[in-house]
Amino acid sequence: MPELKVKGVTIVETFAEAFPMVGTRVIITAPTAEWAMISARTMTGFATSVIACGAEGGIERSLSKSETPDRRPGVAVLLFTMDVNMLQTQLRNRVGQCVLTSPGSACYAGLDGEKKLKLGASLRFFGDGWQMSKVIGGRRYWRIPVMGGEFVCEDKTGLTTKAVGGGNLLVVGKSHKAVLDACTRAVKAMADVPDVITPFPGGIVRSGSKVGSKYAGQIASTNHAYAPGLKWHQDSELPPTAEAVLEIVIDGLTADAIHDAMHAGIHAIAKGGSRDGITHITAGNYGGNLGPHHFHLKEIVG
């Protein structure tokens, strides 16, 4: 079978194996775009992986004044977990500690849907009896008096159980710089795709993991098959020229959104062609038996 190449970069015939997640979106607004972003960044800090963060979260995009409910600059944030209870806890804690506390912020539902998560419905108790509920156009908002004025928070936000986590691309190249540049381009391209986030630092993971370890109690450990320093080992999947491998992990509200993000990512990585030092684009999976979503790179490129 002929190898599939995009501009000289080999697209390995494999697939990204992804898992069902539950997800939600909230909209954070503030007096300035800068403060909306500060609040959103704080809320999605330490939200790279459910392995130890409780949730995976990120900034979906900035919103202009005309797109937000209160006509102030805003940011759309996505948050994902493995089950609804955890999503509820994480949402309450993160909005309570990072958005409520942020100067001039307000927080609104970003997703409709039959199933709901409590937002202001639990944060209202911070008002200690001074909170006020207001229904505008059928949506309930809470007004909580705080030192900075008033924190406005919508009562509930929607959730989806159709979210998908763990869409990924592994980028193999001849130098760390080449791989980092390509991945940075890819994350930027994916940022334009709606309904997805790349939860890791700057969207990129440098320490992809495998399930389990030789040590008891260590649930995840280094993906040694892709560590360039262990190329000598029989498990290695890397070509002799590989000097670095970086991964981009994608969480999305739908499987289609992940598909679109991977498409945008692959083409952004291969943009400069193999001359830029990128040799392979591959993806992580567990043999196909663990996750129900398989994103085949060959289909995505086509």
Partner: peptide, 11 residues
């Protein structure tokens, strides 16, 4: 003081 609630209502 400032009321984001009024902005919501106005919208």
């Amino acid at each position: 003081m400032e009321f984001d609630y009024l902005r919501l209502l106005e919208t």
